[in-house]
């Protein structure tokens, strides 16, 4: 087996293991730490796919900022009464069975789809593997700041609106920083 396959299977196994731990560990703090590890192994997979900028953003924004946000918020709560972490009951059981079977269908559909040639546009070229010229971070920047410039600016606007909204939520009556 070649190097890249070994690396892929290692990273994939680690990602799935940490993802599984995220949803099964009862203590939310450990969930958050396992989620951070999932993000880091996913960044490794993005590196393998030559998406260096995306991998860097994944590490900085997800494994950095978003996880710090989660852990900070968890510290505000009293989590000593977290004995029953999982939902129970008939309806919930039906939902769980449905979710797992839907999940199986997605996996089976992906495996079936991988035998047809719909996944890559030019399968002849893609079969040659490295024959395709991979886009660099420079190409990403050129596309982002020309064709998708309006969307990029709208994202900035969205972040501004969210920042103002979050401050407003904390300042309302009964919020964490209420004025009264």
């Amino acid at each position: 087996m070649e190097m890249s396959s070994i690396l892929f299977y290692l990273l994939a196994a680690a990602t799935l293991f940490f993802g599984f731990r995220t949803i099964t560990v009862a203590n939310p703090i450990f969930s958050a730490l396992n989620l951070a590890l999932t993000m880091i192994t996913l960044a490794g997979i993005f590196f393998m796919l030559d998406a260096y900028f995306i991998a860097g953003v994944q590490l900085a924004v997800y494994a950095g900022a978003v996880m710090v946000l989660f852990v900070m918020v968890l510290m505000l709560f009293d989590l000593s009464g977290e004995a029953r972490a999982f939902s129970r009951g008939m309806m919930s059981g039906i939902l769980k069975v449905g979710g797992v079977s839907l999940f199986g269908i997605i996996v089976i559909a992906t495996i079936m789809g991988s035998f047809s040639n719909i996944l890559v546009i030019d399968s002849g070229e893609a079969a040659a593997g490295q024959a395709l010229v991979q886009p660099t971070t420079r190409d990403l920047a050129v596309v982002l700041f020309s064709r998708y410039l309006l969307a990029f600016e709208l994202l900035g606007l969205l972040l501004l609106v969210v920042a103002v909204g979050v401050v407003a939520v904390s300042r309302i009556k009964g919020g964490t920083h209420a004025r009264d």
Binding site: L16, F77, A85
Partner: peptide, 23 residues
């Protein structure tokens, strides 16, 4: 794609099974 589907399934099961809003 299979790894992505498995990870998505894990997240979906997590949303349905867990009770804590943060999780």
């Amino acid at each position: 794609l299979i790894l992505s589907a498995l990870l998505f399934g894990l997240g979906m099961v997590g949303v349905m099974v867990r009770k804590n809003v943060i999780v």
